[in-house]
Structure formats: C-alpha cells, structure tokens
Write a protein that binds this DNA or RNA. Structure first.
Lengths: 191, 191, 191, 191
DNA sequence: GATGAATGAGCGTTCATTCAT
DNA sequence: CATGAATGAACGCTCATTCAT
C-alpha cells in the first residue's frame, strides 16, 4: 500500500466510523483496525485525532466543489444557476451519505464551531461560489435583500434537512422530489 | 431541596454544560457539582446518563409547546397561523439559546437518531400541531403538495440555521429580520 | 481504610517502586496495585503523576527533619553540632534506604532540578538548620570561608556517596565507620 | 560518512539529548534525527538502546582518563598527586558539562547500578589510578585508614556536588575556588 | 434517601524495535 | 548497508457507574 493509499484508508475508516457512530464511537484503535493499519501508524499521517478530524473535513469539502461546479459556468440564467447548485449539492449528499453525515457531525461539535469561526471571513471555494451568486442576485434585485447569512439559511437549511431525512430513511427522494424541493428553496430566496 | 427541585437542578446543570460544551464536556461528576448534589444522587433520578440526556430532551420539547401555542387558537387565517408558529419558535430559540444548543447537540448524536426513529410514528405535541397545519394546508391547496417531511424541512431548516447563526454571533436578528425570514419560509412552502 | 491511610499506602507503594526501579519502573497501574487500590483512585489523591512524585519528595523531606533535630538543641560545641547532624543524617539514610534512593532518583531527574531551582532561595527546614550552622561557623572562623554551596558539597557529598555505597552493598557501615566518615567531613569543612 | 564517524555522531546525539533531557527525553528516533542517520541505522551499531547507553558511558569514561593523566607521572609528592587528579577531574567536568550530566544520569538509573555491580571488582582505568594512589596513601600512613569506598566518597563526593552546582548555576567556580575545594577534599582524606 | 470515594475499562498517544525496500 | 514507515504493547489519565457509609 502506498503512502497516499494508506492515508486514504485511514480517512475512509474514520469517515465510516464517525459518520455512523459519531466521534465517541470512533476510537483511534478502531479506526486503525478498520483501515488495516497499526494504531500507531495513524500518528505518522496525522499529528493527533483533532488534526485527523479537521483534515478529513477539509478533504470532504474539497471533494464537493468540483462536483457541483460541473456544467455550472455554461449556465447563464440566474434562477437556473441557483437550481443547478442546489440540485448538485443535494444530489451529492444523498449519493454520499457518509460525507453528509460526517459534515453534520463535524459542524455540531466543538471542532465545527471553532473551525467556522476561523474561516468565517476567509473563503472556502463552495462558499465563495454561493456568495458570489447571492451577491449578484441581491444586486440585480432577483433575490431578497436580507443578510447573506439569512439567504444561506433559506437555501441550505431545507437542503440539509431533507438530505438528513432521506439518509435516515424518513423520506425517499427521487429526481422529481429533488427538483421540487430546490424550486421551493428558490421560492424562499427570490423576490 | 425537594425531589422535584433536585431533579430540576440536575436538568439545569446538564443543560448548561451540554449546551455549552457538548456531551464530551459534561461528565456526570461535573453535572452533579453544578447541580449541588452528590454524583450518586443523579442515579436516583435517572437510570443512567443516556436516560438523563433523553429525558432532558423531552423536557425541553415540552417547554416549547405552550410558548408557541400562546394566542395560536385565536388565529384563523392560514398564512398568519404559519407565521405565528414560525415566529414563536424562532423567538423561543434565540431567547433560550441553551435550549436551542441542547436540541442541536441532541439531534446530532447517536441519541438523536435513535430517538427520532422511535418517535417517528408516535407524535409529540409540537409536531402534531405543525403536522395538522400542514395537512390542512395541503388539503386546501395553500401549501405545496410534497411529503410532510419536505414541508417540515422547508419550514424549519432555515429557522434552525438562522437561530444557530444568531446564537453564534454570525448574524444579529431583530424583529424585522425575524419577520422577513419567516415570510421567506412561507414563500417556500406555499403554493 | 481511612483517607489518610490510603494516601499513605499510595505513598508507600510509589516510594518502594520508584526507589527500587526508578520512575520508569513505576507505572501508575503498578503503584495502584501495590497500594491495593484501583488505578483511578490515585487521581483522587494526586492530580497527576508529577504531583504524586513531588509531594512524596516533600513528605520524605519532612520526615527527616525531626529525626536529625532530636537532641540537637542541647549541644553547644560547634564541632559536636556538626558531627551530630552529619551522623544523624547518614544514619537516617542507611536505616531508611528507600527514602534515600527516592531522594536520589528525584534529585537526578527533571523534577529535581526544577524543584531545586524553585526552592533555592526559599528555605526548607533541613537546609535552614545547616545553613545557620555553616554561617555561624564561617563567622566564628571555625569553618573554611568558601561559598555555602561548597561547604554543603564538602559536608554532604561524601555522605551521599557512602550512603549509596552502603545501600548498594559496596561497603558496610558500622558505628565506628560512620563516626570516622563524619569526622573526615568535618576535617574537610573546618579551618 | 565513515562507519566510525557515524558511530560518533550517534554517540554525540545521544549524549546531548540524554544529558539535557534525561533518558525520557531522548527517544531513539530523536537521537537518529540529530545524528543525521535513519532510526534503524542505530541498530546496526548498537544492539538496542540499553547497549547504546552503556557503551556511551564507557566511551565517556575513556575520554577522561588521558585528560587527568596529563602531567601526572612527573609528579612525585603524594599530596600534589591527589590535588592534580582532583583538580583535573573537576575541571574536566565543568569544561564538559554534557559528559558530566550524562555520567550523573547514568549513575542514577537502573543501568548505573547494574553496571557498577558488574564492574566492581574489575577495574576501569580511572578507578585503577585512584585506587593505586589511595592504597599507597594508606600504606604510607598519609591517608586515613578507612575502606577504599569511604576514601572515594570523601574525595569524589564533594567534587560531584560542586560540579553539579556549578553546571546548574548555583555557584560559579573559578581557579581559586577549585583549588580550595580540592584542598578541602585533601583535608578530608589525609591523616 | 443521599453521598462521594472507589473503581477499572477504555481512551489518545508514545516509542523501542523490526523489516521491506 | 541504510533507511524510515509500520507496529503494538504500554503508558498516563478520564469518567460512568457502584456501593459502603
């Protein structure tokens, strides 16, 4: 196994265990076992558990961006741009339930809040795309003139909720339902 | 201290510690100390930590209901009913940030999922009010005809997001902003 | 077992293990086992291993003082005072080899140096008695006029060496040999 | 880097780390890094850490002998021989504080005792010179008639103490003070 | 009933040593 | 030969839970 592969195995094992059982349910020894490495080996790749958790978060964030951007630049109409991004994100979540669960676990933890605070004004790529779209939307008077944080909440809040419900089996999303959900989000943010 | 008072003190202590520092940051001994009781005493009121956590969740849920129902029965217009409930709920969260943080900690944890699974078909009071409102809304063709879970997500998803952002200081909600946020949620769910 | 007894048992167990096998050879679990308590129990009496080690050091220091001071105040002649203290100290060491070994382990460790640095100008009781004796000795021109640290070295250096040799079995001290050793130390410090 | 050079680099790295931070503060990986070799490489030169530590001890002992013997054979007077050796040794220690600290760390450790036990009857060069000097001294009735171990203690005990105090900064030795200290040691051992 | 001292399983982490490259 | 990544036993320490007082 190459160095990169081993790192990936550790990421995969941590992702699975944490997504399924939370940070509590994912001791380092268990992550190591599932990754097929020794317990000490993890510490050659990550300084400690906190670093592993934080880097895994960044890793997942990094995976999402290219997926939701696929085909995006070609779209010109404002509403379609919004629908594209929302749909792509929701699809990503329901197709990658572990990633989704991990992001949720992370956000709701001491790590998450610290992390958000650090990054708030700095930009991560996803946020930047949405921010730009929303700022243009407000300027063109297509979207409601409320603070960006509110627009984010109106757009992503439902999306996270339905993704969670789908993954937990409380509802089953199909293409049609996804489309109608994102359109409802559009209704929420548009003027 | 009476039996009920002691139980309440334990709840209060657990709420504060868990809301502020997560489940990790709230060992039983610390909860006991803050509640002003012995560590063993907690176990006379709650079988174990899981039970304490779960019952505290129910306790908080129970507090919310009367608050959001205040003045509700008098309202007849559908849209106003929705706005009333949404506004009351959002207000409750930002006025009771510990309760809000606790609910979030709880939902995002192994407890939360188990709990939801257990209760899904059973009804808790809040859910029941909203469910009734939404079912009527769909029947009257005032609200979008999508599964209830989706309507819940469209209505509450943004609400939780903005409450969180407000509590963490990422945005500051005033009466006007609250009203516009709930109206935007209405735009999302209405036909 | 009372609280004090338990604390003493932990001290005793730590003393034995550390004196015999060094800090390395005395894991907390082993100390606990020898003390007849659970591993976690130690932490109710001592914040952590460092604190246990440092407090045990102070404890031993505190035991020595009354022993060497027995009968001391009655002695008036300067030389006899010196011989009394030296003899009493050496006797204490060979009669309490664990204490002696522990002090040596402690002095020769990161703890020891830190501790000495902290205490250098402050006074512990033993040091104070010797310091006073030496200062008077210098003033009365009975002892060599060199820095106190040098006098301490001339007086205690050999004493520690012979105690160590005795305990390790490289030499066997009897009353006569003890007396001649302390007299030799006196020859080193006197004018 | 030649074989001998590499061995020396390992010795140097181990000496620095152990002298400064004790055995605890000198993991093999750190020694390897400071020596500029791979971690596994050390094991081609030393069977294990214990052997490295013990051989480094012998190495340092071996360095001291030629230094203290320089000019020694020309001296005939007994007292001057003692003063020469004592002064040379003390000077060596304060000029080579790492060597000194290492010897102290070593003596005060499980290694040290084992080692001494092994070597007690065998002879190392330094010991042999001193032993011969002391035996002649006793025979000629110039030195006190006590077991050799006691004489060693009287001569070296203070020397180690003052060297330690000097290195730790508790006292500052100059030529004059060194001379007076060794003369005081002479007072201790002479008849 | 209330207490809090005692427990020990389980955690995150380190490091001497090995061995495939 | 030299390497350094991999290992896993062992460490210090925490904390949910029990139980003698």
């Amino acid at each position: 196994m190459s160095k990169v592969e081993k790192r990936d195995e550790i990421f995969r094992a941590a992702l699975e265990l944490i997504a399924e059982h939370g940070f509590h349910g994912a001791p380092m020894a268990m992550i190591a076992e599932r990754a097929g490495v020794g317990a000490g080996t993890i510490y050659r790749y990550f300084e400690n558990k906190d670093v592993l958790i934080t880097e895994l978060y960044s890793e997942i964030e990094g995976r999402i961006y290219p997926v939701i951007m696929e085909g995006y630049p070609e779209i010109k109409a404002f509403r379609e741009r919004f629908l594209h991004l929302g749909t792509a994100l929701l699809r990503y979540f329901i197709e990658n339930p572990l990633d989704f669960r991990y992001l949720e676990q992370f956000h709701n933890s001491p790590y998450g809040v610290e992390f958000r605070r650090d990054r708030l004004l700095g930009e991560i790529e996803e946020r930047f795309v949405f921010r730009e779209l929303f700022e243009v939307g407000i300027a063109q008077q297509v979207m409601k003139d409320v603070p960006l944080a509110i627009l984010f909440a109106l757009a992503f809040g439902p999306l996270l909720s339905v993704a969670r419900d789908h993954i937990l089996g409380f509802v089953t999303l199909d293409d049609d339902l996804i489309a109608r959900t994102i359109e409802a989000c559009w209704d929420a943010v548009r003027r």
